[in-house]
Amino acid sequence: MQLALFIIFGALALGGALNLLLQRHPIHSALSLVVVMMSLAVLYWSLGAEFLAAAQVIVYSGAIMVLFVFVIMLLNAGTEQRTRGSRAAYAVGIPGAAAIFCLLSFVFLSERGALKSSNIGGDLSSATDNIAEVSAMLFTKQLLPFEVTSILILVAILGAVVLARKEQ
């Protein structure tokens, strides 16, 4: 059951990511990223992180991607054209990414014995559910970082307003 879920939504995420790479228009890339995020939300749910699955849908594919699509449409961004820089980037980007992927998968596969396998659903601790556990951690041990993030959001809002304002 979980293997089928993993294969279906892992393939969907991978296909969305490849489509992001291959499309030339920014709006197509943004919409493929929405596909990646939604399938990652399903994978989070299958790993027992129900709160993060909901937050992924609401915050990432809801708020952040709406912001991206909004800016793409506001700036009327068109298809990107090939330039001299893009040929150099192809020569560096594809081998570099392949090298990093080979390195990472070599490490993961060689340490495979130490990594266990996972069952579907939350078994963080069977006594409490995931949201109770996350919120207990967030509002007791991690209370100071949690409050600091609210200040970070406030600063980000002010910074966005100041930067995007029309200069006199």
Partner: peptide, 19 residues
Amino acid sequence: MVPTAYYLILAAMLFSIGI
């Protein structure tokens, strides 16, 4: 039952595509 290594390799693929 899905080995954790599969999730890590999927993440590595997504990360390299991002790079």
